[in-house]
């Protein structure tokens, strides 16, 4: 026993905490953006006329949902050198995280597209809207409304999942906790601090989501 919780003991390490938090944020934000783009591609594949393309889309989603992210990260990290590409830890983590998140994004976007009634496309076409205009004025606003909440959940999931990057030597927040903890033997304090960083990030997403949602979706504008 005899362990006293004293935050002061880890003050010297707070400088590196900011860098670590910056990496966590950069990794998560980039992975979210990339996985939305990839996910949109896969969601479109899953609506394709070709059976083969539909199968590829569905298989991608199943593989990503059923394989641990850690294993995917190791594959990306270690496969690079085997085939002659050297990836930095950060890039490997970004690729692995994006590929994995894309599987979930694809499902979210697909559900959003399904929620747009076929009659919406017909009405827009009948009014002479071009394909691009139909997407911009009719389809996208409706998809956005459906995916808004699950998208927020996925953003949080990516932030939490980015902690696994520590396993391939990215110096983000989880890695900070482990390194500082094992040099200072103050694991309780480092845990509390790291947990607070993640809590703040996740709750910021939650609050932002509520605020933006209130602003964007006026009452009554719900899809049937």
């Amino acid at each position: 026993m005899g362990y006293t919780f004293t935050l002061r003991t880890i003050y010297p390490y707070l400088g590196t905490l900011w860098q670590a938090a910056g990496l966590t944020l950069a990794l998560s934000l980039l992975a979210i953006v990339i996985s939305i783009v990839l996910g949109a591609g896969i969601a479109i594949l899953r609506r394709s006329h070709s059976r083969l393309l539909r199968f590829i889309g569905a298989a991608y989603v199943e593989v990503m949902r059923n394989t641990p992210l850690l294993v995917i990260l190791y594959i990306v990290y270690f496969a690079g050198p085997s085939i002659g590409i050297r990836l930095s830890s950060f890039n490997a983590a970004l690729i692995g995280l994006s590929l994995n998140s894309a599987g979930y994004m694809a499902e979210i976007l697909r559900a959003g597209l399904i929620a747009v009634a076929p009659g919406q496309f017909e009405a827009a076409h009948a009014q002479g809207l071009t394909a691009l205009q139909t997407f911009r004025y009719v389809v996208f606003p409706q998809v956005f409304r459906t995916i808004y909440a699950p998208l927020g959940n996925q953003v949080i999931a990516v932030i939490l999942a980015s902690s696994l990057a520590s396993a391939i030597a990215v110096d983000e927040v989880a890695s900070w906790m482990e390194t500082v903890g094992s040099t200072s033997f103050r694991f309780f304090e480092t845990f509390v601090v790291a947990a607070i960083v993640y809590l703040v990030l996740c709750q910021a997403v939650n609050l932002g989501r509520l605020g933006i949602g209130r602003m964007l979706f006026r009452q009554g504008a719900v899809a049937r």
Partner: peptide, 13 residues
């Protein structure tokens, strides 16, 4: 709101 990895670190270390 907390990654399971740091929970595991805390439990173990």
């Amino acid at each position: 709101s907390v990654p399971i990895l740091i929970v595991m670190f805390f439990c173990y270390f």
